[in-house]
Write a protein that binds this DNA or RNA. Structure first.
Lengths: 368, 368
DNA sequence: CTGAAAGCGCTTACAG
DNA sequence: CTGAAAGCGCTTACAG
């Protein structure tokens, strides 16, 4: 007797959406059958199926995704949450792409959201983005950007399944037991390999330039130090004063390196931006890379290829990180009680043009 | 008599979600009243409201977003679709951020999706991403990346409201009448201003370096040409042979510029990447920027600040583009029959260090 | 102001 | 194999 709710909208919505009932009528079957065909489930006779399919095509029917979700109890939407970044740098953009690529291959969807918060805000006071406030909108969240313990606690408190990109987690010790799902790459081994490579190229005086108050730079320093120690070499850490960002850190490091009594022949930079700043400043001081000084970066960002010569660096497989995050989140959703796990992806040393070979064999072969 | 559907899930879903019915029971009211409180609609007495609110808090109830959407006939989710890009460059990343920022301020959500297609595929054969295949999932889409006519037609065919970021639309003439909603920035005026600025600085021999087969580079060339003509100067377009990307285009342009009979004192680059390649190659040829040659870019990308000196360029307000796209899409959703519109946002000349002042007055003041 | 009921567009046991 | 019905978690005229 009542007007259907929807009538009020007819004025606006022009080509009234077909529903499963329209199709049922057109095909002369019950609505349940339409649903069965749609879900390619159970047994529907070939001819009934054909008739339904035909009706669907004729009416241009597309099932309402929202109505399905409410029954499925799963939205097949996940959120990529970027925290405490002034902007979506290529590094995280590539992670997002990995997430999206894996997700869409499985017909899942990715919401992009942004959050700014202080590490000192109590968990319950963190003002989550709208996506995380709604219930039923997303199945889970992938945390990227800088992650502090209070955010982790907050996400746990709202019972939202999540996976964290762990390299930028700050303030939590990863001591064997994982309290949440995480995916990361191997800072330590990355610079271990890079430093060993420099040593193999004949370098003995090798500095590390990077602000080790960042946990990930600290881990890279640890890898560097390990390589130095195993070769009985002396690790030297270069710090810059009041740098304005990483590039500036690199620029300010150059002066320190050049005024050393026993000047380094090579520098391991904490990341590519530092390497870039270093390179530019060294140039200004009249030093050539790699003739006068060798340089290795970390991350393999866009900057690496913009340098001249191009930067030898440690590549991080960002898309793969994203894919793995998505994969792990899906596992979590299907097995809520599964124990937490951590995946550390390997890095790859990319040799380009900023390292000079100082070894005798090489020097000899050059003369020949 | 039947088991509620949901029972099958109980094994998995641990803390069974509260529904509006639980709250109603707890507060001793009807479910309609809960809904009214939730939507802060109509008149609910102060005390009833308080009682309901209290029950909501106690039970930790959060309304199911999906169920609401199905009634509202609007998901308040839009899709940011990046087409034909190998990756989400900072330029588009910033547009996405603008979209997200405006959207989330209005409690809307943004899905990120990617599409690769050929301009020659017939519209109906374009394989749209899952997001666009579902019905009811998103309210509309913002098109970014490179957009060909066949994509526009395809999106129109599925009756999906959309707004296009128009600068990278290829193959459609914008002749006064707009056939779809679009937001863009002013290529023409940007380089017009940049070129006028160079002229004001005393430059007369000014080249343009850029591949004008890209429509947006063509528009920038047009702006440059206009400035040259209005000053009775001769426009010169530099093209590179088989460039491998824009940076390489810039590198290959340098040789051509340096071998000119009447060598240019300044170059307007089609974009910052070209300017970067130009700068690097000029350096290698022993030329100093801006002492020997001046340079202006376009876009104000990250590269601009990585140069030394930093690049003077035309800034595009990318976040604002994103915000405007989102705003326009919302208008479209609320007024489906509204005539299409186009918004062209202004650019801004950013003066940094790559332009030398050749004018007499300035030269004189230098001698003093 | 508020409860009871119809409805949104689907899915899925149930009973042939 | 398939129709009729109950149900998902909400919203909203309807009738007090």
């Amino acid at each position: 007797m009542r007007k259907p709710i929807e009538a009020r909208f007819r004025v606006e919505v022009v080509p009234k959406q077909k529903t499963i009932r329209d199709v049922a009528r057109a095909a002369g079957v019950g609505i349940g059958t339409i649903s069965r065909v749609l879900n390619s489930s159970s047994q529907v006779s070939r001819e009934t199926r054909a008739r339904v399919l035909e009706a669907i095509r004729r009416l241009g029917f597309r099932p309402n995704a929202q109505a399905r979700r409410i029954l499925k109890r799963r939205s097949e939407i996940v959120c990529f949450l970027l925290s405490n970044r002034d902007f979506l740098h290529p590094f995280h953009a590539r992670i997002l792409q990995g997430v999206e690529s894996y997700a869409s291959s499985l017909k899942h969807h990715v919401l992009f959201a942004v959050l700014h918060y202080s590490p000192r805000t109590p968990p319950e006071k963190i003002d989550l983005p709208p996506v995380l406030q709604e219930h039923g909108l997303i199945d889970g969240v992938i945390l990227a950007g800088t992650i502090y313990p209070n955010l982790l606690r907050r996400i746990e408190a709202i019972d939202m399944p999540f996976v964290a990109f762990s390299n930028n987690v700050v303030g939590i010790d990863g001591d064997g037991k994982y309290l949440y799902d995480q995916v990361g790459f191997d800072d330590f081994n990355g610079s271990l390999q890079a430093t060993r490579y420099l040593i193999k190229q004949g370098h003995r005086l090798i500095d590390f330039a990077g602000d080790i108050s960042f946990p990930w730079i600290q881990r890279r320093f640890d890898g560097y130090r390990q390589a130095m120690r195993e070769n009985k070499l002396n690790p030297v850490s270069i710090m810059a004063q009041n740098p304005d960002g990483f590039v500036d850190f690199g620029q300010k490091s150059a002066g320190r390196i050049l005024t050393q009594a026993a000047r380094a022949t090579a520098v391991v930079a904490g990341n590519d931006e530092i390497a870039y700043g270093l390179w530019r400043s060294l140039q200004r001081h009249g030093m050539k890379v790699p003739d006068d000084i060798s340089l290795v970066g970390f991350d393999d960002r866009e900057e690496a290829v913009l340098m001249d010569p191009q930067l030898s660096t440690v590549r991080v497989h960002k898309e793969e990180i994203g894919e793995t995050c998505m994969k792990m989140l899906l596992e979590r959703l299907h097995h809520p009680r599964m124990t937490f796990s951590q995946r550390i992806l390997p890095t790859e040393l990319v040799i380009r043009g900023t390292v000079r070979n100082l070894s005798e064999r090489h020097a000899a072969s050059r003369i020949l």
